Simulated scan of single mutants.
Amino acid sequence: MGKADADGPGLPDLPPEWGRVVVPDDIAALADEAEQIRRELRRTAADQRRWRPPAAPVIVLIVAVLTTLAGLAAVTWPRASRTGPGATTPDPTPAQLTGRPLPALDLVDGGQSPVPLRGLLPVVVLLVDGCACPEQVAAAATAAPAGVTVVSVAAARPRAAPPGVRALADPAGGLRAFLHLPASQDGVTALLADRTGRITLVVPEVTSIADHHAELSRLAN
């Protein structure tokens, strides 16, 4: 037969909301209650297994698949639609180079000493890395007004130049790279810059320097 815990001497006080608690003399009397509690615990465990999140390997596989799909989309995306900071910029045309400042490049003379390009202003630069074209170089020297420097620029080392023309070289190819113009075997590339360093004319392939007499005359101003 059970007895009330809450009223028994020496037992700890129990919360009053529990009401009257009876402790049976025989623990077997609690078998039904224990079985009911076990059933509740098994039901709770089954519910937790039913809603268990995917295992770690499954999550890794899903992430890997999504990453692969994103990479394929980036590779196959039409490049023509790229207009942001990473978009390819077309090379400037000779007309677009007009008005830009002459680059601060160093050429070299016959002794491989550096010669600042901007120290030659105003200047007519004739790139002879594709064609020596001595007649065109001589004609430019004759047509240039007084006070304008005429320079022939070869690739590896200076080429022989007629009187009135300073022969230099551009081993690094910086000037040709700035112009974005290929060397031609049929003529020289001409670049004119005034005394402020502003480019006034770029001719990819000169046929006759006399065609640009007006631009040459303005260089002396």
Results as ranks from 00 to 15, higher is better:
45 A>G: 05
162 P>A: 07
89 T>A: 10
156 A>P: 05
83 T>Y: 09
209 I>D: 01
150 V>K: 07
207 T>S: 14
18 W>Y: 09
105 L>I: 06
185 Q>S: 15
188 V>N: 05
183 A>E: 08
201 L>P: 00
66 L>V: 13
73 A>Q: 14
123 V>I: 08
25 D>Q: 14
145 P>K: 00
29 A>G: 15
17 E>K: 12
14 L>T: 08
171 P>T: 03
162 P>T: 01
147 G>P: 00
106 D>F: 00
103 P>T: 05
187 G>E: 02
60 V>D: 11
217 S>P: 01
30 L>D: 06
88 T>H: 14
127 L>V: 13
112 Q>G: 10
42 R>G: 04
42 R>H: 08
196 T>G: 12
176 R>D: 04
173 G>M: 08
4 A>Q: 08
144 A>H: 02
217 S>L: 12
105 L>S: 01
37 I>R: 15
13 D>H: 14
40 E>A: 15
60 V>I: 09
5 D>E: 12
209 I>T: 09
82 R>N: 15
40 E>Q: 15
141 A>V: 02
57 P>Y: 03
24 P>R: 03
171 P>A: 02
219 L>D: 01
80 A>E: 13
5 D>G: 07
213 H>A: 15
211 D>R: 14
131 C>E: 10
56 A>I: 13
192 L>A: 08
17 E>D: 11
99 G>I: 01
30 L>N: 05
28 A>P: 04
53 P>H: 05
219 L>Q: 06
195 R>T: 06
166 R>H: 10
98 T>D: 04
111 G>C: 02
63 V>P: 01
207 T>H: 15
192 L>S: 01
7 D>F: 11
97 L>K: 10
156 A>E: 13
172 A>G: 12
28 A>G: 15
188 V>T: 13
93 T>M: 07
180 H>K: 12
118 R>P: 00
72 L>Y: 07
57 P>V: 03
62 I>W: 14
108 V>S: 08
153 V>M: 06
197 G>K: 07
169 A>N: 01
150 V>I: 09
85 P>K: 06
129 D>T: 08
56 A>K: 15
144 A>W: 00
55 A>D: 15
27 I>Q: 14
221 N>E: 14
60 V>T: 11
118 R>W: 02
185 Q>Y: 09
36 Q>E: 12
87 A>C: 09
143 A>H: 06
161 A>C: 08
197 G>S: 02
166 R>G: 10
176 R>L: 09
142 T>N: 09
168 L>S: 07
217 S>E: 12
178 F>G: 06
49 R>Y: 05
4 A>S: 08
38 R>N: 11
109 D>W: 05
133 C>K: 05
141 A>P: 00
20 R>N: 03
160 A>E: 10
133 C>T: 04
143 A>W: 00
80 A>V: 09
39 R>H: 11
138 A>D: 09
136 Q>D: 12
211 D>A: 13
51 W>D: 11
128 V>T: 14
205 E>G: 08
97 L>I: 12
167 A>W: 03
187 G>P: 06
180 H>F: 04
46 A>I: 01
130 G>E: 01
148 V>E: 05
10 G>Y: 00
119 G>Q: 10
89 T>N: 04
